[in-house]
């Protein structure tokens, strides 16, 4: 069965329509979902909103798109065969001579050093740097947009992979039960005893952790969150009469797990997801704050908080980090609340 028909089936199930209605009726959660999705959608185009390269350059009858392609200085009549630095006044001059430059809303990328500051970095918010600059004279607003994107992407990927692994492991343990279940549970007990933070610290001294390294290591531990609920649902589900009826029809184990029991387990899973997501966000931020997170120079909210702590005389750093984290987490918690209400089984009974 294709994805489209599966989606149609899920969409047209009256129970799911009911849930969607409940979710919509939960005004706070519904608006939070819209707001959060819009923010995330906008941040996906961070390169267009905040960049130190122009969106479009018109030069000598030709159009150039510096964001997507590197051009040599020679293209614009410069002297050296090096990539053009559009923030350089000389380059700007020669381009404007024969054409036009269109800049993004914020003419800084997350790693652009603003050399034109009138005061020592970190500098106060000005019209040029709306939220000021950090202690390396980088624009805080640009870093915030990129940092938000990477945090949400990280949390999304982590949630996605840990639920896939968690659901699969929980399903297998619960469905087959017996020895598989016993060994699985004991393994999880031992595995969850390993200290994740220490592992990350040790790793940080061995390799330079990047996005994927962090994701991999956190995945090693975060998949266990869902195992228990899914396993419980499958333990219950495998003895339901309609599951036995499916067995009597000759349905394979995989199909029974997917078609008959998994939908039941999805209720618990969907309720948990927003909270796993929030957890992943917070973990990444705290690792960055401690300095064991993403590589140096990456835009990240945790790093911004750290700067705020180190530069108490520049309150715009700490306040920006605090407000953005708070808004993000509050929106997510509201979404999670609405999802929890929508999937509340007591509502289904009515």
């Amino acid at each position: 069965m294709g994805w489209v028909t599966t989606w149609q089936r899920i969409k047209h199930n009256p129970m799911n329509q009911n849930r969607w209605q409940t979710f919509k009726n939960h005004k706070r959660g519904y608006w939070s979902l819209w707001l959060f999705s819009s923010l995330f959608f906008i941040s996906l185009f961070a390169e267009i909103i905040a960049n130190d390269k122009p969106l479009l350059v018109q030069y000598d009858q030709g159009y150039y798109f510096p964001i997507w392609q590197d051009y040599s200085e020679l293209t614009f009549g410069g002297e050296l065969d090096i990539p053009a630095d559009y923030r350089d006044e000389y380059i700007q001059e020669i381009i404007l001579d024969k054409g036009e430059i269109w800049w993004p809303l914020i003419p800084f990328s997350y790693d652009t050093f603003n050399y034109d500051l009138t005061e020592p970095a970190p500098s106060m918010p000005t019209l040029q740097n709306l939220l000021g600059t950090d202690d390396q004279s980088r624009d805080v607003f640009a870093r915030l947009i990129y940092g938000f994107r990477i945090s949400v992407l990280f949390a999304l990927t982590l949630t996605f992979f840990s639920s896939i692994i968690g659901i699969a492991v929980g399903a297998i343990q619960g469905y087959f039960g017996g020895r598989i279940d016993l060994f699985g549970q004991r393994f999880i007990e031992i595995w969850s005893g390993l200290p994740m933070l220490f592992l990350l610290i040790i790793l940080a001294s061995l390799v330079q952790p990047n996005f994927w390294w962090l994701l991999g290591i956190m995945l090693l531990f975060s998949w266990m969150a869902l195992v228990d609920v899914v396993r419980a649902e499958f333990l219950r589900g495998r003895n339901l009469e309609y599951v036995r009826a499916a067995k009597a029809l000759g349905q394979s184990h995989r199909a029974i797990m997917f078609k008959h029991i998994l939908p039941n387990a999805m209720v618990a899973t969907m309720t948990f997801l927003p909270f796993i997501f929030t957890g992943a966000l917070t973990t990444l931020t705290s690792l960055d704050f401690l300095g064991f997170g993403l590589e140096a120079g990456s835009p990240s909210l945790g790093e911004l908080i750290k700067q705020g702590k180190n530069n108490l005389h520049a309150p715009w750093l700490g306040i920006t980090a605090f407000i953005s984290m708070a808004i993000m987490l509050v929106l997510l918690v509201f979404i999670g609340e609405a999802a929890r209400d929508a999937f509340d089984p007591r509502k289904d009974c009515q």
Binding site: M15, E241, Y242, A245, H260
Partner: peptide, 14 residues
């Protein structure tokens, strides 16, 4: 083939 006792439990509600 088999038909079970509980007509509420033997059909998947989804």
């Amino acid at each position: 083939q088999i038909v079970f006792q509980d007509p509420y439990g033997s059909l998947s509600p989804r």
